[in-house]
Design a protein around this nucleic acid. Sequence first.
DNA 1: ACCCGCGTAGACAACGAAGTCACCGCAGCC
DNA 2: GGCTGCGGTGACTTCGTTGTCTACGCGGGT
Lengths: 342, 342
Amino acid sequence: MRRPTRDDVARLAGTSTAVVSYVINNGPRPVAPATRQRVLEAIERLGYRPDTVAQAMASQRTNLIGLIVPDARQPYFAELAHAVERAAFARDHLVLLGNSAYDDERQLHYVRAFLGMRVSGLLLIRQGAAEPLVEEVSGSRTRLVLLHHRTDLINTDAVVADDVTMGVLAVEHLLGHGHERVACFDAPAGTPRTGNPVALRTKGWRQALRDAGIDPERGLLHRAPFDRYGAARAARRVLSRPNRPTAIFCTTDDQAIGVLHAARELGLRVPDDLAVASCDDIAEAALHHPSLTTVATDREAMAEAAVDLVLQSRQASTPEIRRFPARLVTRESCGCPPASDL
Amino acid sequence: MRRPTRDDVARLAGTSTAVVSYVINNGPRPVAPATRQRVLEAIERLGYRPDTVAQAMASQRTNLIGLIVPDARQPYFAELAHAVERAAFARDHLVLLGNSAYDDERQLHYVRAFLGMRVSGLLLIRQGAAEPLVEEVSGSRTRLVLLHHRTDLINTDAVVADDVTMGVLAVEHLLGHGHERVACFDAPAGTPRTGNPVALRTKGWRQALRDAGIDPERGLLHRAPFDRYGAARAARRVLSRPNRPTAIFCTTDDQAIGVLHAARELGLRVPDDLAVASCDDIAEAALHHPSLTTVATDREAMAEAAVDLVLQSRQASTPEIRRFPARLVTRESCGCPPASDL
DNA sequence: ACCCGCGTAGACAACGAAGTCACCGCAGCC
DNA sequence: GGCTGCGGTGACTTCGTTGTCTACGCGGGT
């Protein structure tokens, strides 16, 4: 009942253990076809699988990628995590998943645990400040790539979207529908803003208004929670005021869904009484009622780039930041006719 | 720049390596407080972290749980995976996540890869037949627990919901609203049905109709894809027929969301022209428009039970199946007044 | 002086592979 | 017949721990 080892295979195949390793790893020495065949047959008969732990021990490498997200239940992160898993699978790596739950300590716990596992790469949608994380990782040979959040000033790679443009595209489109009071739902108060994609999207909102000759006045900028219920609560407040906006730009689809819910409760029709546009293009955006106008990014491509970066054993000379373009997807919530998505 | 080892700690603390291990593992031998203190300080100063790989190598145990789901993007699985991660975290274990993508081979690949990693437990929302998986795992000391799907006849543990009752609750409620033509959206054709929760929910539909003296006629049972777009396509066909149902029971919320979308396209008002109820109670169900009446299960509790089962080193005498109760959540889609969910 | 036992020291064998190295047998070649 | 190169051998080290085993110092009881 003992799990077969390399020695068992060698014995059955009538070869030495070294040859078994050569066959498995295709090298570093050539093996004659006949011998290789005998070894493969022995492996097959014993149902031998090399022990990954022992391999990691000996080779000082693992086939593990650590991925830390704030909350894998949220569609955006779930889709990103899925894309990372696909990319890792294609490169014969496994994914260790941790949820930071928007908690700095928990995030640090996972970083340490993953380093302890000797992951060959660490992918992180960071929470809080970046410095402690980078410091924790420096000194290990493990590579760290930040996903989603940019980090200038910090010596680590990142894969991000062109967040400013995302805001600009969405807001320009709302302006194109004739709106002038376009509010913005930004990140909740207290969120660190350096390199934060949400802060950049808000910057895009500001920029688009200015370019249209409109003053991005303070009364239009709202700090709202990221979760749907929190966003709905915030929206109820904003929409109940006398001088309510005629359009809202949300920095995430999740917020937008909360806003739509609040609008419905208040008897406001979307898009007639209130237009909404947001960012991310999660799967739900297309099937929501009304469907969401949003700015999409190519998550698959971003995840692949991140995995490639993290597995690439290049010397870290200067941090590499890969930025991906954004694309507006018009649907009902802004006032465009519903596309036949199906 | 080399990562510090236990030897470095022992040298700095002026003790032997054994004592360092005793301190870290709290045993098996006692350590005098003063010595313990010196060791802890040395660990602190060096920033020493035990190498998890080496620990696994020597102790023949890992702190890894392998979790395989069909598609972690789908809200139901995402929520389940999140709950598993939480439970694992609380028990100081890490989660390896794999998506089987509804593909038998890929699922098997992950089972093998995770066994190769010597995970201490394997949690599986299975895809396809259970036998090959159980066979693959038997022989290793790893425990396998099936989540979501029941498997009688097979020698392995499982954590499931009371799926038949889920169907009964939803359908009885629809009948209570006065509907008589209650259709059922079942799994797509070709899905294995033994122990499949969806098949059991359909059984609940049949049972509820019979109990109400209604014939669950063939024309009311529809095989529909699980994804939203596929379900929407199926719904368009069903709802365009002359003798269309006045209510639809969907075995998953995802299907229901597709049905709602199709109804809207066809100009049918929900719940007036068509009532809908489903199962799962994903987060989205509450904020959809109209909000979804659905049958909920306690995913947190199920995930915890699954993790406990998989980590429990009990001798597998007879497979343990833990079944969790279901609870109807009434919202708009069935005709009930909208609850103030927030 | 002798024994006892606690707390620790120090050594060492696992664990299962990777990788290295010296060496060997054999076929083909000039 | 000696040389070369290929394919293979078998033993050994390494990786960083765990866990076990023997030995030792030292204080207290007899």
